[in-house]
Write a protein that binds this DNA or RNA. Structure first.
Length: 111
DNA sequence: AAGGTGACCGGCC
DNA sequence: TGGCCGGCCACCT
């Protein structure tokens, strides 16, 4: 069996915790999450964690974008425009892999 | 154990 | 907004 549940208390788990708290219709940046867990300099790790989030169903990685509001991680999703579809489905306008009014939909992890 | 990797960020132009 | 460069740090092989 694969058993890739990753029960370890790794850094990834911390990231999932925050991402899971993201409300619908809201988006956040990797840096914001990194800061929330207390690892501003580990923003890259946040993206790394999202890579493994594919096994996690409760992790809406599609609500996480880079600082520019670009769907940088959309390439890692099942489809090509799956991420965009999900965001639009929640009321977020996405044009050319870019979130419209990114700041408006920006959600900061509440400690 | 050491090196390579990466869904990033910030600064500069 | 966009492109380039350096730093940073946990995970993987």
């Amino acid at each position: 069996m694969k058993a890739k549940a990753k029960n370890n208390d790794s850094f990834f788990e911390s990231v999932y915790e925050i991402v899971r708290l993201i409300p619908e219709g809201k988006v956040t940046s990797y840096g914001a999450i990194a800061k929330a867990i207390g690892a501003v300099r580990s923003a890259r790790m946040v993206g790394y964690a999202m890579n493994a989030s594919h096994n996690m169903e409760d992790v809406p990685a599609h609500r996480v974008v880079n600082r520019k509001g670009l769907l940088t991680g959309k390439h890692h999703f099942d489809g090509t425009n799956l991420m965009q579809q999900l965001l639009e489905s929640e009321g977020i306008k996405v044009i050319d892999n870019k979130i419209v009014d990114f700041e408006k939909h920006f959600w900061e992890p509440d400690f």
